[in-house]
């Protein structure tokens, strides 16, 4: 069984984790239909290094992993705050 390094809890069996899909920026609420359809329904399915959401299930802790989908090698894991540092608001 694969081992993944949780930024909070350290190396653990992959069975303790849940993959949340690729890290992808959500379009602005007013973006075009096509942009939303792409965000909601399409995955890039990249062959190469991807940034993915992963959750350590026992702590429900979400973080980001960089993984090479060709070799399944996990290159780096880090807290989501490295990417999402600022409060996000939607215009009224």
């Amino acid at each position: 069984m694969k081992i993944m390094n949780c930024p909070l809890n350290g190396p653990r069996n992959i069975s303790e984790f849940v993959c949340g899909g690729e890290v992808e920026a959500m379009p602005a609420p007013g973006a075009a239909d096509a942009a939303w359809a792409d965000y909601v329904f399409l995955e890039n399915n990249t062959a190469g290094v991807v940034r993915e959401w992963w959750m350590h299930a026992p702590t429900s802790y979400w973080f980001i992993a960089e993984r090479d989908t060709r070799s399944d090698e996990i290159l780096r894991t880090y807290p989501a705050s490295e990417v999402f540092a600022e409060r996000q608001d939607f215009a009224t």
């Binding site: 849940v18 949340g20 959750m55 429900s60 979400w62 989501a80 999402f84 409060r87």
Partner: peptide, 20 residues
């Protein structure tokens, strides 16, 4: 629902605590 809420707020970073 709980995990989903945490995931969204990992991106939104609102001043809110979510506990199951």
């Amino acid at each position: 629902v709980y995990q989903n809420m945490l995931w969204y707020n990992a991106q939104w970073r609102l001043a809110v605590d979510i506990s199951n």
